[in-house]
């Protein structure tokens, strides 16, 4: 019971919110790069690559992010690799996000209408040219709404980094609560802050989806 919520507490929470955004950006960029590789590997002509990437996706999607985080933080420390909370959280989120984005993007690449693939092949484009010049530009359009939607999941999931001691929004809320002990009020503030970050993205994703639905209704197979 240490006084009331004042401007310093709010500043501290604000700083945590900035770290939440920072960690989300790290996870999005890292997970995006690895996820792109996963998406391509999932449709690779090599059977071995296809199976390996499918196993990776199944394993990560079958494990809670919390366990991946503990594995990255306590697990690596226990076998002699000391990592900072930021590195552990960034790496774990990257691996986690990559598995989901990879699957989303694979679906988007495969939903480019079949004639486009055949036409590119008919024009004697190499596999790389076909991907870069024909398929990916169209896949990016399809992929934008679900990717923006998934960014909401990323922001929410960074809250789990608090359990390995990374001071983002959730953790800074817990620290403020330790000195004030007004859990309900403080977690309500935290919830509102997360909502303020996530809801605009959700709306944006919905709008993109609607706009695409109008433009492509005669093109895309369901």
């Amino acid at each position: 019971m240490g006084g009331h919520l004042n401007i310093n507490h709010l500043m501290f929470l604000g700083q945590g919110a900035l770290w939440t955004i920072g960690l989300s950006v790290i996870a999005l960029i890292g997970g995006g790069i690895v996820g792109f590789v996963i998406a391509l590997a999932r449709i690779s002509p090599l059977k071995f690559v296809r199976i390996a990437s499918a196993v990776y996706v199944q394993l990560v999607q079958g494990t809670p992010l919390l366990v991946i985080l503990f594995l990255g933080y306590f697990g690596l420390a226990a076998i002699g690799l000391k990592v900072s909370p930021l590195a552990a959280a960034g790496a774990s989120l990257t691996l986690y996000v990559a598995a989901y984005l990879g699957e989303i993007w694979r679906g988007c690449i495969q939903s480019v209408p079949k004639p486009q693939w055949e036409a590119a092949e008919g024009l004697a484009l190499s596999r790389t040219q076909r991907m870069m010049k024909v398929i990916l530009p169209q896949a990016i359009r399809i992929a934008t709404p679900p990717t923006v939607g998934f960014m909401v999941q990323i922001i929410k999931n960074t809250s789990l980094a608090s359990v390995v001691g990374f001071v983002e929004l959730m953790r800074s809320g817990q620290i403020v609560n330790n000195s004030l002990f007004e859990p309900f009020a403080i977690y309500a503030i935290i919830a509102v802050t997360y909502f303020a970050m996530c809801y605009p993205l959700s709306l944006f994703s919905q709008r993109l989806e609607r706009r695409m639905g109008r433009g492509r209704s005669n093109l895309a197979p369901a």
Partner: peptide, 22 residues
């Protein structure tokens, strides 16, 4: 629906936990 879908589960659990307690 929108409130729950746009806030983390961890925050929701703490709110229920401390909300009921308070």
């Amino acid at each position: 629906v929108e409130t729950i879908r746009n806030t983390p589960l961890l925050v929701q659990i703490f709110l229920v936990y401390f909300g009921l307690a308070s």
